[in-house]
Design a protein around this nucleic acid. Sequence first.
DNA 1: GTCTATATTCAGATAGAC
DNA 2: GTCTATCTGAATATAGAC
Lengths: 216, 216
Amino acid sequence: MAKATHDKIIEVAQELFNRNGFGGVTTSEIAQTVGIAEGNLWYHFKSKRALLEAINLEFIRCSEARMAINPGDGFVLDEFVDFQIELSKEVRKFRFMYRDQADYGQHTPELERELPRIYDRTIEQYRNFILKMRDDGIIGISPPDVEMLCHVLVLIFRYGLEFLRESHIKLPGDAGPITMSVRFQALVLSRFMPRQYVEEFEALLLKKLSSPELSK
Amino acid sequence: MAKATHDKIIEVAQELFNRNGFGGVTTSEIAQTVGIAEGNLWYHFKSKRALLEAINLEFIRCSEARMAINPGDGFVLDEFVDFQIELSKEVRKFRFMYRDQADYGQHTPELERELPRIYDRTIEQYRNFILKMRDDGIIGISPPDVEMLCHVLVLIFRYGLEFLRESHIKLPGDAGPITMSVRFQALVLSRFMPRQYVEEFEALLLKKLSSPELSK
DNA sequence: GTCTATATTCAGATAGAC
DNA sequence: GTCTATCTGAATATAGAC
């Protein structure tokens, strides 16, 4: 039962933190949900903060892997959509960490140090994709607009889930929140494309976003 | 000193909540900052929650006034920029309330009830401006894209400040965060305009965003 | 209206038996 | 490794003097 309880605690805590925020979840609540005594919690993690650190580290490790994704030899729009889906999974899985940093306590010094770098590298990833699209003649865009566009797209991704959740807005179609984020970005990005690529892009999104795991 | 202390408490609390969130500010901290004994706080507000309610109500009242703004008889781009500046002031002033709703306790039932309506009406405002722009031949846009565009613009406004704060991103130019939000939106919106209006829009932004109170 | 002193509550954490 | 019992400290709130 050694590893099992340890992992179960992390899993449950992450789930609860995602739902109610770090400060909005008590250790008693975590223990209860896991189905163990609260005292047992302190055997596995010496403090609530240590539990947070474990999750923070997993997040850093996970985003490190995602940040290695870059445009390759294939069709760039195809690769771009795959990248977005990867990013969307990360945002969903670590929702509470991607959440308001003003909720103090939510971020360890470790994460606090890493976050600007994660943002920078994510912007850079978008830049790589956008420049590739430009070089391949798929979009027409000026250098200063490239920078603005990267930032706008990251902003949409970062906050798309929160926006849909808190606004209770229902958009036409029965698309899930992640699908919606991708479509928001598509609206912006496709305005830089000639018509034939817009249609191709649309078709790609339609195909790749139909996976049931994305409509949750 | 009756009204003065009461108002000072609200003012200080709002400032602190904006900085650290509702849960991240203690009543002791508020009293200390105001320069009164903590006991005195409970004379003016029977609970921390009552203090929050007072601020929440002021927010609802304030946004009610802003939501009455609609395109009039003037040049729609001019009116649109004025509207955005009004909205930006509201977002800045009530930052902590516009913040993550997962920070439980931050929202009274009253606000919880009003928020979806505030979102709906804000979307509607954007829709009114966009349709007016379309009708005046300033932008070309399809009906389904109108809906998407409204949502994307509100998303950018709602989260622009948070994004810039938490990403520590520095964009070219010495623009303040609010200026940045407006420019992000302009990037998206101007892609629907013919060239001559893009330039006119740019000129308007340059003129209206130079106010020193917006560069904070 | 404002203060000081005190009560209440509960989340986070420890100790030690099993 | 897991439990029960208990402690600590901080934040919210009350009581009553001035």
